[in-house]
Each structure stands twice: as C-alpha cells, then as structure tokens.
Amino acid sequence: MSGSRPAPEGVDPNTPSSARIYDYALGGKDNYAADRAAAEKVFALAPEMPLMARQNRAFLGRAVRYLSAEAGIRQFLDIGSGLPTQQNVHQVVAETAPESAVVYVDYDPIVVAHGDALVATTGNVSFVRGDLREIDHILDHPDLRRLIDFDRPVAVLLVAVLHFVHDADKPYEVVERLKDLMAPGSYLALSHVTPDPHPEETAELVEVSTRAGAPWVARSRAELMRFFDGFDLVEPGLVTAPEWRPDLTKQVDPDKMWVLAGVGRKR
C-alpha cells in the first residue's frame, strides 16, 4: 500500500496492477510505488487521465441508478470491479432496492480482500476472485451461482475492464458468452478507452503503459459497438462517459475525455 504495510500473500508489489493504478487515479491509498510510477508515466503524457477515471466512476454510479430505479434490475454482476471506493454498486442499489443481489469480480487478491471486508455482514453481496479472460471459471463460482439467476434479468457491468483484454484473449467471445446466458430484458453496461479523438497520442500512451508493465488496448467506436450486438442501446447511446445521462453542473470538454460509455438492453 502507499504506506509501509507488507504485501498480502500472492501479491507482487513490484508489478503494476490496473486496479491499483485506477485506485491511485481516483485518489485512493491502496496502491504501491510500482503502481504510482506506472500511473505517473501515463499522466505525464495525458494529464486528463485522473479526470477520466473520476468521470468513469461517476458513469458507473449513474448507470447503476438507472438500472435499479428505472429499469427495475435486481441482480448485478460487476466484473473488473476494482478496489472498493465510495458509491460501490451495492451501496447505490441499496438506495432503491436493498434486497438486490450484487456479485463483484476482480483478479487482484487485494481487491477481493478489501471487498470481503466491506461486505462481510451482507448476505446478498459477494466478492469473487476471477479473471474476465477465464469467464467460465467466474460463471461456475459457487457464490455467483448462489446469488445470480440468469433466468431472470441481470445487469452485467464491464466498466473500464475490456480495454485490458487484448484481441488474442477473445473479448468479443467473452461478451458473447455472457450475452448467451442473460435473459431477455437484461442489460450490459460498459466503458472503454477509445483512440478516436487522438489516435497518435493514444498509441503513445498504450506504448508507455505497456513498457511500464500495465498494458491495455484502445478500441474505436465501431469496435465498441460490436460488444452491443444483440442489445438495444439506451439513450443517449454510446457517448463519452460524462455525456451519459449527465448530472454535472460543469460541462467536461469531450475532447479531453477518451472514454466511451453505454448501456444496452438485451432483446
């Protein structure tokens, strides 16, 4: 962590983690020197990255409120959830329907340890350690099977995670696998870094991040729309994160927001 506490078993503090880099961008303290060093290399090229992280987190909150309060969803599967912070999914849905089931999934053992502590007394919320690239392992987990019934509508949240899944790991097939399980009337919410506003700068950022040990991939609007095959996009469609049903008092310059976000309803 940012202090002097030793790393938990199974955690290499010298290898950057996307979850801990995201935590650092949000102003959190559950990160190591390697995470901060990798993040600062990216921030040096794109100072708007911390703002994008905050706006991405705000999109998650607005999407979950919509899904719970307006769409009536009572089951949430948040894959690539990252470290618990303010306004987690189960806290947001508790405002509308505290009986909702929420399953968080992340591959980082620190995330799961913090998550387990957060929901230790909550029977309808669970943290599962799993990697999106091994989707069947996640879907077979007993906690997920206990809480999520795919015969009923469910919201699958893939917020700021698919850009860590390279094409060789078959991201479209992973989303298709999830879609096939989801009942009609289910929802997919995702956000993803795009190169569309600044392709040359984005390519440089990807290269710097890869060298720093935190590789990711940017995808175009057309590539992101493929994830929504079989879904009808909820208004306003696939837009920059702060433009999705905004509740902002101050407009964010879309040219400085390289994250597209959207919510789709399965037909």
Rank of each mutant, 00 (worst) to 15 (best):
G3P: 06
R219E: 01
T249C: 14
A160F: 04
M1E: 05
G130P: 02
V234A: 08
L188M: 10
V263M: 11
N56E: 09
D229M: 12
D255I: 12
L77V: 04
R152V: 08
M52H: 11
L158M: 10
G115T: 03
A120F: 03
S191T: 15
H90V: 07
L238Y: 00
A160W: 02
D140T: 10
P236S: 10
D12T: 04
M182W: 02
L178V: 08
E48Q: 15
L181H: 06
S81Y: 08
I148H: 01
E243K: 15
A44P: 03
Y22W: 14
V92W: 04
V217M: 05
P197D: 07
D143T: 05
K179G: 09
V119G: 00
V11T: 05
Y172V: 12
S17F: 04
D131I: 12
D253K: 09
A261N: 05
D229I: 14
D232P: 12
D255R: 15
M49E: 11
F231S: 04
Y66Q: 05
A160R: 08
V175M: 05
E173A: 14
A58V: 03
H163F: 07
K266D: 00
A53D: 06
V42G: 14
A160G: 10
K179I: 13
D196N: 03
R267G: 05
G115F: 02
A58K: 13
D136H: 12
A25N: 14
I110R: 01
V93G: 01
D151F: 07
P8L: 05
V128Y: 00
Y22N: 10
S81W: 08
T96E: 12
T194K: 02
D180R: 15
I79D: 01
A37P: 08
P84A: 12
V125W: 00
G3R: 12
L132V: 14
V42Y: 13
E204S: 13
A120I: 03
E134N: 13
F43Q: 13
A19I: 07
P184C: 06
A218C: 06
L147A: 00
R20D: 04
Y66F: 15
K179T: 15
P84R: 09
A37V: 14
G10L: 00
W216K: 07
G237M: 08
